[in-house]
Design a protein around this nucleic acid. Sequence first.
RNA 1: UGGGCUAUGGCCAAGUGGUUAAGGCAUCGGACUUUGACUCCGACAUCGGUGGUUCGAAUCCACCUAGCCCAGCCA
Length: 553
Amino acid sequence: MKDLVITMENRNFIRTIIEEDLAKGKHKAPITRFPPEPNGFLHLGHARAIIMNHTLALEYGGYFNLRFDDTNPVKEDMIFVEGMKEDIAWLGCHWKNLLFASDYFNEMYARAMTLVEKGLAYVCDLTPEEIKTYRGDLKSPGQNSPYRARSIEENIRLFEGMKNGAFADGEKVLRAKIDMASPNMNMRDPIIYRIQRSYHHNTKNDWCIYPMYDFAHPIEDAIEGITHSLCSLEFEDHRPLYDWFVKHCEMENVPRQIEFGKLIIANQVTGKRHIRQLVEDGVVDGWDDPRLITLSGLRRRGVPPQAIHEFIKALGLPKSQGDTDIDMFYEYVRNYLSQHVRRIHGVVDPVKVIVTNYPEGQTEYLQADYHRDHPELGSREIPFGKELYIEREDFVEEKPNKKWKRLALGVEVRLMHAYFIKANDVIYHEDGTIKEIHCTYDPNTQSGSGFNERKPNGTIHYVEASTAQPVELRLFDNLVTDLSNAAIPIEEKLNPQSKIIKHGFIEKSVNPSVSEAFQFTRIGYFALDKESTDQNMIFNRVVALKSSFKPKK
RNA sequence: UGGGCUAUGGCCAAGUGGUUAAGGCAUCGGACUUUGACUCCGACAUCGGUGGUUCGAAUCCACCUAGCCCAGCCA
């Protein structure tokens, strides 16, 4: 897919800042980046950051980088790099440059050395426990490290030693010399480099020291000439430190960090730990289980990326933070699909209809558009014959009230794209369930014939039995019902109805590709699952159609 | 009195001194309909609280209340 930029006519505070900066001539165009740590999978919440960074830059004539913030090799893996690239590309957010923080390790080291040379950083020998103690707590100031007063020469020598492997892991760290009494904990001589001998997916064993986020991030942004460095609210407290590093490391470009509210979808499992647990316990079928809102899960389910863009755009970019209902998202999914996808007939819970006055062994084909409002989606011919399947819930023996707009004994309905049928009799199995419904059809009522002498009691869909394609249908609901009480483990909040498997039929007119979505008329949107085979065709329900039908009354 | 941030209808969210307080989701009416879908009409808030400034405040000030974030050699 080419770059997907859905213009955001909605205002937001970052857009205002960008426009002001542009007006002041601060820069020619915004340059943004999405900087994930490759240690997991992306989910719907990340889509806000990705799409906002991408869209805001492109909309104002700038560009967008994808930069992996790979400064902690013990947690990171190339497998996540690949997964994230795939997800972001799928979203249609194409990056100008694919970058890695680890590409800058040399420069970062040099910039840290600059700090040392200026007397703004020192090597500290305190143990982790001691550092914690010296840091003080939220209400009381910290104390200076006894190593804080080391000479510049000694710090240079020691920092070089750290880099060259002269010390054991964890034996020393490099810290910025700022203010141990700052009310902002981040400013209490934060650690810049730690010694950590581990294999890095990119730099292999070249380094035994790795920079910390607070130091690395601003340097990365500055090197790339990022103008607006967007991040989430929890980094607000880090901004003074971000600016401190950019300034004292004498970076040419001065990026500006701006924080916005993360997108949180209510009652969705997004935590890496939790998802991993669900995967390992077999509760879900991998990180791309269609019940997960990981981008890979949504893709597998059949959600189109355009719907995600529209949803993100509608949400705006606030500085406040609340939980968004997943239903709002589903509505955007429906809206997109309803205009872009072919509509076919599928029966989720089949019951057989015998058209008693239709000739035995005969089948005829009737013309049917794939989408009434979008002729460009084409048309097909659908079969009609003596034996059909209709939806079990579309029939009831006795019409319960005038509002019932489906089939009932003595009642005539239209079969969409075909004929009127009238139910005359019901044959039951021994267990009392319906075996077949006997109907008669009226050949004068063919779809498109203009017949208007009688009004049918509604329109229902059907699939011709002899040509029907059997399919497995997976109907999804929220994985978890109510996540609000964090004290209850997720395992105890699982929704037993989150995945229901049905066996139905669809018309045989289409050859779907994986994740291709269709509307099953009157039922919902379904997309082919990646596990589908010719022998066992499997569809995921992307989302059900809305319904104002109220059965009780 | 550690520091930082947020507070607009059931949910999301515009709004930065003068508007009937955008819009979306949800809900409730009703029209239309070869999908009880779509579409279309219509209904649905006085802006966390209290004081103040002002001819005029959601928008400015003060105080209060509630929620979120910060004490990883994680990001």
